[in-house]
Simulated assay, not measured.
Amino acid sequence: MIDHVRRCLELADDAGPDHGSSGSAKAHRKLVRQRQGVKYDAGRARAIAATILERMGEAGRARMEGLLVVGPDGKSTFNRLKKPAQRATGRGSDQGPGRGA
Rank of each mutant, 00 (worst) to 15 (best):
L67F: 12
H4K: 04
E54N: 06
K83W: 06
G98M: 03
I52M: 05
S76F: 00
G20Q: 10
V69L: 12
Q86S: 11
Q95D: 07
D13M: 03
A25H: 02
G96P: 01
G66I: 05
R55V: 04
A85K: 14
R33H: 09
L31T: 13
P17S: 04
L67Q: 13
S21W: 02
G16V: 13
C8I: 02
K83S: 07
A101K: 13
E65V: 00
V32W: 13
A59F: 04
G66C: 04
R6M: 04
R46V: 12
H28Y: 10
P72H: 01
A62E: 11
R35H: 14
G37I: 03
F78R: 10
P97M: 01
D3F: 12
P17H: 02
G57E: 10
L31A: 15
A59N: 04
H19E: 01
N79A: 14
A25G: 04
D13F: 03
F78H: 05
G71R: 04
G37S: 05
R63G: 02
G16H: 08
S22P: 05
R46Y: 12
A88V: 04
N79M: 13
D41C: 03
V70F: 06
D13G: 08
M1L: 06
V5A: 15
G90C: 03
A59M: 06
G23Y: 02
F78D: 02
Y40R: 14
K26P: 00
G71F: 00
M1A: 11
G60C: 07
K39N: 01
E10V: 09
G23I: 03
V70K: 13
H19Y: 09
G57M: 09
E10M: 08
D41S: 02
R63D: 10
S93C: 11
H4Y: 07
G66Y: 06
P17Q: 07
E58R: 14
R87D: 12
N79Y: 06
L9E: 08
D94A: 12
T77E: 11
D94W: 02
Q34G: 06
V5P: 02
I48A: 09
A45D: 14
R55H: 14
G43R: 06
Q34D: 15
A45I: 08
G43S: 09
P17R: 12
C8T: 12
M64F: 11
M56E: 14
G96K: 05
A25F: 05
G66S: 07
K26V: 11
S93M: 00
S22G: 11
T77D: 04
K30F: 02
A27T: 08
T89D: 04
K75F: 03
D41Y: 01
L53R: 15
Q36K: 13
Q36R: 12
R46E: 15
G71D: 14
